[in-house]
Design a protein around this nucleic acid. Structure first.
Length: 508
RNA sequence: GGCCCGUUCGUCUAAGGGCUAGGACACCACCCUUUCACGGUGGUGAUACGGGUUCGAAUCCCGUACGGGCUACCA
């Protein structure tokens, strides 16, 4: 038997990919890389009523942006296709029939109305949501209650039906979760899940087992919300392929929002992204903001996701993808859910911007400035600006505000910050500064600062009282890197121009 | 309601029987900086509760409470 590590991410293409989904991808990816195995993406599109145009494409774009490319998928090819469940439709029915034959599943002819009636009829205070289980199934219309003749007649007539698993009445099913250890269930408390739907498509329960087997998946990872249906999958493995063939399971803790499981609504409500990238619902046209567009670096996004539920046991917090591959281990994934903290997320991004080289920041920042109507004179200037302002940018989008004054004369000057202390002496100083700078042959920050301070000394003024006005003149407000660095980069003409313009404004 | 999972500062977490319960984010103060940041120093702040086991428990066991998930012909 093959021992090769093969893991899969199996999204349902019904909308944008959120935090938790990307983290599941990440942990799959890290595990595969760490063990020299394969990482594949399988599209779980068995519910045709939930088809959403563009969702599949979106998923792959997201993976690309994150740098988590699969080895095999609809887009990447591979020897275990098709990688889309709807294209595997033909392969599921035989397994369901096999189970019926073995007495481990049965045909059920109940209509949606009959099911609804059952739920109403058996609903009590103690049991608000009755399940189709061993206590109920003999009261329903299925091959257990119908005679063999009736059943085959109905089938022959093409009556709509599903195939349900027949959960044993009194067995204990247990398995070892890589994160939680042994988990056990009493089969009597689990309902008879539908395996094959009336349209001939499998439900998740059947498909996940059949496909994991077909694709030789060695380790199956998913969110904790799947834990309650695990006994169904365990039993299916046992019945269909043998328990020794079953992959090892790990159920990841949930990522929580302010009120339980994180939802895209939380994002809108609390003002932080939930999806990896912008997602526009094709039906409603509703836009859900993504981390990418919000100004996150993919490296930071990956980094913060990795630490949401896993840690190495050291005090390190900043990890590159390569480092994560090296250090990741499933044993150190937490079992408790983690509440998403947007403040910390931003901190990760800030750290990544600070430590990123100018070269890697340049394309993104360049585009961003262009999109915001700022003309960058040269790559050289752009690089210098990035170097100068990057440590005060938490999000990539902050570069716009932090550097616009390098490329455009400020539209508004915060004269209110200067005016109250503006006087004849200062006016004289700047007049003299203009004269001095006009004659300057060396236009570098150091020289500019020296000259500035000399003139201040001659006029018996404190440089500190002059630097703020100078900054306001060049930048328009109380922010930005060192003033002389700004002046140096702005060049002589533009610097002098801005001083003069501002001085006129201060006269009024 | 039933089933399952979980519970260390507000948040993410470290400490896999021996501690003044450590770090990070956020917050506060101070220093640096003649802007804003960066950086530095310090501070506030946690083992849900009750029983065991043990010389010793955040750590192991049981119960309670609380939180979360699931309870569809959705994944």
């Amino acid at each position: 038997m093959s021992k090769r590590v093969r893991v899969r991410f199996a999204p349902s293409p019904t909308g944008g990919l959120h935090l938790g989904g990307v983290r599941t991808v990440l942990y799959n990816y890290l595990f595969a890389r760490k063990h020299g195995g394969d990482f594949l993406v399988r599209i779980e599109d068995t519910d045709q009523t939930r088809y959403v145009a563009g969702a599949e494409e979106y998923i792959f774009n997201t993976l690309k942006w994150c740098g988590l490319e699969p080895d095999e998928s609809v887009q990447h090819g591979g020897n275990f296709g098709p990688y889309r469940q709807s294209e595997r439709k033909a392969s599921y029915r035989q397994y369901a029939e096999q189970l019926v034959l073995a007495g481990q599943a049965y045909y059920a002819f109940d209509t949606p109305e009959e099911l609804e009636k059952m739920r109403q009829d058996f609903k009590t205070t103690e049991n608000p949501s009755p399940q189709y289980d061993h206590t109920i199934r003999l009261k329903m219309r299925n091959s257990l209650t119908l005679s063999a003749e009736e059943t085959s007649q109905l089938l022959a007539a093409g009556t709509r039906h599903v195939i349900r698993i027949k959960m044993p009445e009194n067995e204990t099913v247990s398995f070892t979760d890589m994160i939680r250890g042994e988990v056990r269930f009493e089969t009597g408390t689990v309902d008879d899940k539908v395996l094959l739907k009336a349209d001939g498509m499998p439900t998740y329960h059947l498909a996940v087992v059949v496909d994991d087997k077909a694709m030789e998946i060695s380790h199956a990872f998913r969110g904790e919300e799947w834990l309650p249906s695990a006994p169904v999958h365990i039993l299916l493995w046992k019945y269909l392929f043998g328990i020794d063939q079953m992959p090892q399971w790990a159920h990841f803790p949930l990522i929580l929002g302010p009120n339980g499981k994180l939802s895209k609504r939380d994002g809108a409500k609390y003002g932080f992204p939930v999806f990896a990238m912008n997602w526009t619902d094709p039906k409603t046209g509703e836009l859900t903001e993504g981390f990418k567009e919000k100004g996150f670096l993919p490296e930071a996004f990956i980094n913060l996701l990795a630490l949401l539920g896993w840690n190495e046991g050291t005090e390190q917090e900043i990890y590159s993808l390569e480092e994560l591959v090296e250090k990741f281990s499933m044993e150190r994934v937490h079992s408790a859910g983690a509440k998403f903290d947007y403040e910390k997320a931003k901190w990760f991004n800030h750290e990544w911007i600070k430590q990123s080289g100018v070269g890697s920041l340049e394309p993104g920042v360049g585009n961003l400035l262009k999109e915001n109507g700022l003309e960058v004179p040269s790559r050289e200037t752009l690089r210098k600006v990035i170097e100068l302002v990057k440590e005060r940018c938490t999000l990539l989008t902050d570069f716009v505000q932090q550097s616009s004054f390098f490329f455009k004369t400020p539209e508004t000057i915060d004269t209110a910050a200067v005016k109250p202390k503006w006087n004849e002496a200062k006016k004289l100083f700047f007049t003299e500064l203009i004269r001095n700078y006009e004659l300057a042959t060396d236009w570098d920050a150091h020289t500019l600062e020296n000259n500035f301070k000399e003139i201040a000394a001659v006029n018996e003024l404190k440089p500190g009282e002059l630097m703020l006005p100078f900054r306001i003149m060049l930048v328009g407000g109380k922010y930005g890197p060192g003033v002389f660095d700004i002046a140096a980069l702005l060049g002589k003409a533009e610097t002098l121009q801005r001083i003069e313009t501002a001085m006129k404004l201060l006269q009024d």
